[in-house]
């Protein structure tokens, strides 16, 4: 059983990210997955989290108790949920949004500038999908093939291409961090395992091949709210 908590602030697509993880596992990886969410009236801008259980057996007790995998996409989310993780767990952060952190006592700790990558793709809103790709690479919970199958029906039709791109960027960034990129010519980013200075102004880019998308100045971001597919 994997106990996953994905956290950030309302409006980032945190619940959506959890939804796609659960959908990938349960519909395309042949596992069972239960998604629950911390849900408040405050919504946009405040801390929120999605909890996903993934197991080979049907899930009876539906809640995460001690997560083995935590994703933090905001400082507040990290402060609230970053320490609440098993000792051999995996912590993933958006390194531009979680800047102040104690080196966590976890098995694995990786960071990615997910929001910056999304901005370079032209739409900050897909940061959650960049993170989803990164999550897919850094954990063995879901398979990339299943993730690619789940994604198109989970986002609005006109954004499928952009979201697939976001997924691949996050996924490749993860492979590069792990040193697993199939393309030998790729510049290998420095390891961030151990994490001591991962968040603190690390200026790494995901790879030299990244297309320089127009930077999102915020005019696109608020309005195009992704609607929930299934």
């Amino acid at each position: 059983m994997n106990e996953i908590r994905i956290s950030g602030f309302g409006g980032q697509g945190i619940i959506k990210c959890g939804y796609i993880v659960g959908k990938t596992a349960s519909l395309f990886d042949g596992k069972f997955a239960t998604l629950t969410q911390s849900f408040g009236p405050e919504a946009r801008g405040s801390a929120c989290s999605a909890q996903v259980l993934v197991d080979d057996e049907p899930i009876r007790y539906p809640y995460v108790t001690t997560p083995d995998t935590v994703v933090a996409m905001s400082q507040e989310a990290y402060d609230r949920f970053g320490a609440d993780i098993t000792q051999d767990g995996t912590l993933l952060i958006d390194e531009d949004l979680v800047k102040s952190l104690e080196p966590p006592k976890v098995g694995k700790f990786y960071s990615i500038p997910a929001t910056r990558i999304a901005e370079q793709l032209g739409l900050r809103l897909v940061a959650n999908i960049v993170m989803f790709g990164f999550f897919t690479a850094m954990t063995d919970i879901i398979t990339p093939g299943a993730a690619r199958e789940a994604l198109p029906s989970s986002v609005p039709a006109r954004f499928v291409e952009l979201n697939m791109k976001a997924f691949e960027q996050g996924y490749e960034y993860g492979l590069a961090v792990l040193g697993k990129l199939p393309d030998g010519g790729e510049e290998k980013p420095e390891e961030t395992k151990s994490g001591a200075n991962a968040g603190a102004g690390s200026k790494r880019e995901a790879g030299s091949k990244k297309a320089k998308g127009k930077s999102s100045s915020g005019k696109n971001t608020g309005k195009k709210k992704a609607t929930q597919g299934e």
Partner: peptide, 9 residues
């Protein structure tokens, strides 16, 4: 609310 907002297959 738990069942209403819980997502499963």
């Amino acid at each position: 609310e738990c069942v209403g907002h819980m997502t499963e297959k």
